[in-house]
Design a binder for these strands. Structure first.
Lengths: 320, 320
DNA sequence: AACCATCGTGCACAGATGTGCACGCCAGGG
DNA sequence: CCCTGGCGTGCACATCTGTGCACGATGGTT
């Protein structure tokens, strides 16, 4: 009843360009109610709005990035002086919209966890996708409490939005011993999830930066001890993708801790058709550069300011 | 430049929920300009808004029609006392939006001509569709002047909207002699168009009603002489689809004039995957009933008032 | 039965949006 | 050279839209 009214109101508003006043009279409710109906229609995914990039947008930032790394880039316009938190919110909104736009029946969506992905999850409008699954890409349990429920809620919120089957990955972010990982990887319960991960059609992840203003989750939630942090610095690690650490040049294979990490390596990721990387914040630029050089992404969603920083660093002219 | 600004403004407005004031400051223009940029983004097809029908809308008119005729129905909400012209405009708007939503690469769009289809053409937002074609379904030349350019403009406006190759059908609406039709149908120039028509993926047409308040084009533009009109009445013809005449029970094969008509018969239409019928006006109900019984449509776009009328007539309780 | 929490609604106001008008810029033509 | 028509812009106003608040209905609990 209510949903049907929302549908009727949305049709009249968006498809027939009627004012809410007129719609209110037709439906026999107050204008305020119509406003709320239309809002709920948007939030419930009854209304979908997409914006397509005009083909001939010439020399702008997005196209430069796309050309350099051979990826599709979505640059989110933001005001110059906008705070990083504000920008994160903007980018997350756009990412959430694009994601629902890219959803296809039977899709397997792989999601990592972190501040960025969590922000995206807050902006997802419900978009039922027949036969879809959502799978957690990397383990989240840590010595500190809360990692599992945190990641669990995150996956659940994606699964709810797409009406998908959720697959959790109940392993720690890092094993203490590489042998344990090897052992667990032989367990059928784990293998089942790994198998789903290999069939991911659309992977979604952010990048972690070791030195960030809004510090990335991994480096602050008790996942790593002091010795490990020191080792990262010694290894010239600048950040991570799916809790696999990277250097700015994109190398990662010889970083010891990665043998104990549970997320897919850049090499694993590259097997997947579509890999969407979302990044906000100048501090993430070195890590992002490493990620792009490791070719982890096919799509990049980034705010204008960070994008500019990235291009600057590429040219070698690092700004203060 | 302008288009790029429109894209940025539209992104910020629709995807990031920014106010125009904020967008104006970011882009360095006045708020009014932003309003206009966003409007143009909508009109130029940069922004697409679609409204999906909630699955569980139970006993409403649309579902009753869908169940009765085995078609998909889109009922356009209108105010009860709305004029027929107003309703036509509403329905045409919705039809235009749905059409762009249904457009797929390589599609062949078949369009008839008439008041309804013309109204739709006025509301089409440009939506480039790779490799698409638009083909005229029925001839339009008449003894009175203007038929050809009229249909030509119509087809051209569809072709422009979808960036398609247009195929005109340069034959009269009705031949005077069935033999001429047979002869023309052997001509290669005509056969080429007929061949495109057979590959139509999406056919769009209205229904003509012999006795309409807003009279249908065929019966008023000099296509038929008095004797022919009298013959139609004698044959219990209630209207036409693509200038092929029908009775209310859906029969059409034994109506003499149809042998001289150039549009696809219901039987021809049924070969096409998707056939979208658009209808407005109580006067069209008998003709529409005939059309639906002849199974010419897979999709029906109709206003609420006409839909109600249609259901009433189905139940035998014709209202005054 | 009384109570309370929750929810949906309309009212009224604040804020956001659309648009007629006038101004200024530019290009083409006299 | 000026004139003129077309176009894009900002201003100011009218209209449209979003939302805090209060009220009333509903349903469950004590």
């Amino acid at each position: 009843m209510r949903e049907d009214d929302a549908y009727r109101a949305a049709t009249m508003y968006y498809l027939q360009d009627q004012t809410m006043e007129v719609i209110a009279k037709t439906l026999g409710v107050s204008r305020s109610t119509v406003s709320r109906l239309i809002k709920s229609a948007r939030e419930e995914g009854v209304v979908r709005i997409s914006v397509r990039q005009p083909s001939g947008s010439g020399t702008n930032i997005g196209h430069r990035l796309s050309a350099t790394f051979g990826i599709k880039t979505h640059v989110v316009p933001v005001r110059e002086h906008a705070t990083e938190l504000h920008r994160l919110e903007q980018v997350a909104m756009v990412a959430a919209r694009l994601l629902t736009e890219w959803a296809t029946p039977q899709m397997v969506l792989g999601v990592a966890w972190g501040t960025t992905v969590t922000a995206i999850s807050r902006h997802l409008a419900p978009t039922p996708v027949r036969g879809s699954s959502v799978v957690q890409l990397n383990g989240a349990a840590s010595t500190a409490a809360g990692g599992v429920t945190y990641a669990g809620d995150l996956i659940a919120s994606f699964a709810r939005a797409f009406d998908s089957t959720p697959y959790l990955f109940p392993v720690p972010a890092f094993f203490d011993f590489a042998e344990t990982k090897a052992a667990m990887w032989r367990e059928r319960s784990v293998r089942r999830v790994l198998d789903v991960q290999r069939h991911v059609d659309l992977a979604l992840f952010g990048v972690g930066a070791v030195a960030a203003d809004v510090p990335s989750h991994v480096y602050n939630a008790g996942y790593l001890d002091d010795a490990e942090m020191a080792q990262l610095t010694a290894d010239r690690v600048v950040g991570d993708v799916c809790t696999v650490f990277l250097r700015e040049d994109g190398s990662y294979r010889d970083i010891a801790i990665n043998a104990r990490a549970t997320g897919p390596s850049p090499g694993d990721l590259r097997q997947l058709a579509r890999r969407v990387c979302v990044a906000v914040g100048e501090a993430k630029v070195p890590a992002l550069l490493g990620a792009l050089r490791a070719r982890v992404a096919t799509d990049l969603i980034i705010d204008e300011t960070t994008a500019r920083s990235l291009l600057d660093r590429l040219r070698g002219s690092v700004r203060p």
